[in-house]
């Protein structure tokens, strides 16, 4: 299994494990130093990270097909979670069922590397098919809203997320990192962007960006994250991707800005529904959409940036 992992991707994974071990150690020291404080949420959060990263690396190491199935399952969980919190009509149960069926198909196009189908299946075919299935049922009350909701949920949780999987089947341009390198680069930069925006915001945050949606988001946090990710992405890009340093800087800017947007878009959805978390699948994080929020924006944008540059 380990021999499936290209050299640079292997070192990247090892690096992530070292970061996690440091986080676990810090959390342990904190709870020993302040026994009166409750660190349950921090502990749960870190434990969940071990699980998420452990499972991701495991499936990446088993092989491309296993990893594609893994991302398909993530799409399923995310779509299910989204359709559960958003109002749907009882009459649309069949259409919702069709929406679920699009997941194995979409990831099948990924697995066979059929780019043309992968890129239009949900925006064109599902866009046309889902309302057709709804019409067959004949319920016209709330039709526009229901059709819009269903297609939007497919675009977010299936179309966007499947771009991560497609990175794995692109022809390899950086042999020492493989397709895996692109996935690791995207996931690491996106999640690290969340963390560094949070940390910069905690340290220096003063001026709120969009208080009505997300009162904790500040310009200081956003810009601090932007600079951090841009620098890190530029340094890491030549090792994990076909990009040179300059292209890596631009990828960092792209991921940092779009990650922020994804985060606040999902925040708006939750505000609209008046809920704090989208579920409680991942202890300490909330639901799966709470974790995927930034990726919904970064995955397709990073993919098309790479695709434009190299394919």
């Amino acid at each position: 299994m380990i021999e499936n992992i290209p050299e640079n991707s292997f070192y990247a994974m090892a690096g992530v494990f070292v970061v996690l071990m440091i986080a676990t150690l810090i959390q342990f020291l904190l709870s020993v130093k302040n026994p009166e404080k409750d660190y349950t949420e921090l502990r749960q959060r870190i434990t969940s990270w071990w699980w998420i990263i452990g499972l991701l690396f495991l499936f990446l190491a088993i092989g491309t097909t296993a990893a594609i199935v893994f991302f398909a399952f993530i799409s399923f969980l995310a779509l299910k979670e989204f359709l559960s919190i958003v109002p749907t009509r009882q009459a649309d149960r069949n259409a919702v069922f069709w929406a679920y069926l699009s997941i194995p198909l979409q990831y099948y196009w990924v697995a066979m590397g059929w780019y043309g189908m992968f890129i239009i299946f949900i925006p064109v075919y599902m866009f046309l098919l889902v309302p057709m299935r709804m019409v067959l049922k004949g319920e016209t009350d709330g039709f526009i809203k229901a059709a819009g909701t269903l297609h939007w949920s497919l675009m977010m949780t299936v179309f966007s997320v499947s771009h991560i999987a497609y990175l794995l089947v692109l022809p390899e341009k950086n042999i020492s990192a493989g397709g895996m390198g692109l996935v690791l680069f995207l996931l690491f930069m996106t999640q690290f962007n969340d963390v560094s925006q949070y940390v910069w915001g905690k340290l220096f945050g003063k001026h709120k960006i969009i208080p009505r949606v997300s009162p904790n988001k500040t310009w200081e946090g956003f810009l601090g994250g932007l600079v951090t990710i841009t620098v890190v992405a530029g340094v890491v890009a030549p090792y994990l991707t076909p990009m040179d340093q300059l292209q890596g800087y631009i990828a960092g800017i792209l991921i940092s800005i779009s990650g922020f947007i994804g985060d606040v878009v999902i925040s708006s959805v939750k505000r609209d529904l008046q809920i704090k978390d989208s579920g409680n699948l991942i202890p300490g994080h909330g639901g799966i959409l709470d974790r995927l929020d930034s990726l919904i924006y970064t995955a397709p944008l990073f993919f098309h940036y790479i695709y434009y540059l190299y394919y």
Binding site: F76, K80, E81, L83, S84, I85, T88, Q90, R93, N94, V96, F97, Y100, G279
Partner: peptide, 19 residues
Amino acid sequence: HGLGRTLPKGEALFVPFNC
């Protein structure tokens, strides 16, 4: 809450939803 969407009375089609 939500189970009535997954498998309501009189329906055989099981549609996944979080509950």
